[in-house]
């Protein structure tokens, strides 16, 4: 196991090195950073001075190693537009995104696995067929349409929930949470549902397909022949065996939730990192874009590492070898 994790770690380092190279190249290829920083009336001398200060005249490799060194210390430079350190900006916005992703992942997992098991066991009932038809909508409609539709129904028409923004936050000192107040929950429900819907249907369909397959296996037949109860067969024997492939997909998708929160955050004006990224793109705020790229890649890599370790926990065949 140690060897396996070491190998995975090495792969992760390689991925991060490539991503950091790509994000570093943003500085040089997306416009001239000096132009972005100074006004139109800056003189040639001023421009050269800034170039000197920023080290833009150094060889590319020197610049890259400086970028890497700073990045490893959490220093991504100053935002061109807001003129504040990028890492501070990200950490201010991070709680909003992570809470949104957390809530929608829970919704996707609980509802997705629950309905997947139900439709897998009662595969011929009308409720199952209904759930499956509706779930098609979840896969086929784009996130922003679902978001706007939800806003129209629950915020504009029924006026039950707020249409946008994040309210009712409580500052814990190191983390601003909206999960401790009713207002906060009211604000997070719609964006969380919107974000979770696609993953939910994916998990539902995957769990159902796996359940159907596991129910055909010999060990389920043997469990029946021993007279075990339906509940023991469905949950103790079948469900756990469906989880191995499901974990793989869930791992990839939680990374996806973070990356794709961009759209949901824009629709609901949710003050998270995704919204910050979209605004940064509008203003060609390269330091924020580069930092966001590295940050999302890091999350992906970490989540996949956790997934690989989860295999060991769930499957004794991997844990104990043959």
């Amino acid at each position: 196991m140690f060897f396996f994790i070491l190998k995975r770690l090495a792969q992760s380092v390689l991925v991060m090195a490539i991503v950091s190279a790509v994000s570093f190249s943003l500085f040089n290829f997306v416009g001239d950073p000096v132009n972005n920083m100074v006004g139109q009336d800056a003189t040639r001398e001023q421009r050269l001075e800034i170039r000197e200060q920023l080290g833009l005249d150094d060889p590319v490799l020197t610049q890259y190693s400086r970028f890497l060194g700073n990045m490893l210390q959490g220093d991504f430079g100053l935002s061109y537009r807001i003129k504040r350190p990028v890492d501070q900006l990200i950490f201010e916005r991070l709680p909003a995104t992570l809470e949104l992703v957390f809530v929608s992942a829970i919704i996707a997992l609980v509802v997705g696995i629950g309905l997947g098991v139900y439709t897998g066991i009662r595969r011929k009932s009308w409720i199952s067929r209904g759930i499956l038809s509706v779930s098609l909508v979840g896969v086929s409609l784009p996130t922003f349409i679902i978001g706007i539709a939800l806003i129209y129904i629950f915020a504009v028409h029924l006026r039950w929930l707020p249409s946008s923004g994040r309210s009712g936050t409580v500052d814990l000192g190191w983390w601003k949470t909206s999960l401790l107040t009713v207002d906060g929950w009211r604000a997070i429900i719609l964006p969380a549902i919107t974000l979770s819907l696609f993953q939910l249907t994916l998990i539902l369909r995957l769990v159902r397909a796996e359940m159907l397959e596991v129910m055909q296996t010999d060990f389920i037949k043997f469990a029946r022949a021993r007279g075990l109860s339906e509940r023991a067969i469905n949950f103790r024997h079948a469900l756990r065996n469906t989880l191995v492939p499901v974990i793989t997909i869930i791992g990839l998708n939680i990374g996806g939730l973070i990356a794709f929160s961009v759209i949901t955050e824009t629709v609901f004006q949710w003050p998270g990192t995704g919204l910050m990224f979209i605004q940064a793109v509008d203003f060609v705020d390269v330091p924020i874009m580069a930092a966001y790229l590295v940050f999302v890649a890091l999350l992906f890599v970490l989540i996949n590492l956790v997934v690989d370790i989860l295999y060991f926990v769930v499957d004794p065949r991997i844990r104990l070898g043959n």
Partner: peptide, 26 residues
């Protein structure tokens, strides 16, 4: 009623021992 017959009064053995046991349970 049949569930009380299966296992208690009639036991079954299947062909393939590789697949007759749940791989995730001791």
């Amino acid at each position: 009623e049949m569930r009380r017959v299966r296992g208690d009064r009639i036991g079954m053995i299947f062909q393939d021992p590789q697949t007759s046991l749940n791989p995730l349970m001791t």
